[in-house]
Each structure stands twice: as structure tokens, then as C-alpha cells.
């Protein structure tokens, strides 16, 4: 709507969506590198797993910062704290479950 023109939209108006294109290319590259490491190389299993999980975390942060605008808004610190706490609990659940049950089953 024209009456709602604001500064941000004027800044965005000009220009090619570099951020999005770089995000896509990086994501695709990381996906194929992970595939190559898992299938193409025959490294020890735990080395392979460490590398591909690291690549996945890196790719997730690309999505978060390049596509999801996590640092936007009037007070982005609120959503950052919320999402970081979610990430922490999710990793604690997965890591804790694997650690506790590694020898039990």
C-alpha cells in the first residue's frame, strides 16, 4: 500500500536479494559437503558424525540469521533469548537422552 511507505521498505526497494542468494548457495554447498563426507569419505564413524552435526548447526544458523531476520524488531533481545533457550532445551534433551540411555539399552 502506497500510503504506508516507510524507510525500511525504501532501503530494500533497490537491489538484488544478495543475502537470500548467498544463504541458498551456502546451504546447498553445506548439504553436499555433508553428503560427501558421510558417503564419499570413509573417516572413522565418530569423526564423520561430529563433522556433519557441526555442518548442520552452521547451516541452521545461516537460516536463522539470513532468512529469518532474528535480529529485527523493536526489541529483538526478547525473541533471541526465547529461541536460544529453546535451542538449549532441545540440545539438552537430545544429548541427555543419548548420554543416559547409551549403556542402558
Amino acid at each position: 500500500m502506497d500510503e504506508n511507505q516507510n524507510q525500511m521498505s525504501e532501503q530494500v526497494r533497490a537491489g538484488f536479494p544478495w543475502k537470500q542468494v548467498i544463504g541458498l548457495l551456502l546451504s546447498l554447498a553445506l548439504t553436499f559437503i555433508a553428503l560427501w563426507i558421510a558417503v564419499g569419505l570413509s573417516l572413522p564413524v565418530h569423526v564423520t558424525l561430529t563433522i556433519i552435526v557441526g555442518l548442520a548447526i552452521f547451516q541452521a544458523f545461516i537460516q536463522l540469521f539470513m532468512f529469518m531476520h532474528v535480529t529485527e524488531g523493536t526489541e529483538p533481545v526478547h525473541q533471541l533469548i526465547g529461541i536460544l533457550f529453546g535451542i538449549y532445551v532441545a540440545f539438552a534433551v537430545v544429548g541427555g537422552t543419548l548420554w543416559i540411555l547409551a549403556y542402558a539399552l
Binding site: 532474528v70 524488531g73 526489541e75 526478547h78 525473541q79 526465547g82 529461541i83 533457550f85 529453546g86 535451542i87 532445551v89 532441545a90 540440545f91 534433551v93 537430545v94 541427555g96 537422552t97 543419548l98 540411555l101 539399552l105
Partner: peptide
């Protein structure tokens, strides 16, 4: 929008439990 981020954080935990179960 802030509230929606909190919802996404909760979804992350939901998927975390399913990942934990699957991996075990």
C-alpha cells in the same frame, strides 16, 4: 511476532524429544 518466536522455541523442544527418541 515475539510471541511467535516463543512458539517456535517450543516447537524446537517438541522436535528435540522426537530426535532423542529416534536416536536412542
Amino acid at each position: 511476532i515475539v510471541g511467535f518466536w516463543i512458539f517456535l522455541a517450543a516447537e524446537l523442544v517438541l522436535f528435540g524429544t522426537l530426535f532423542g527418541t529416534y536416536l536412542v
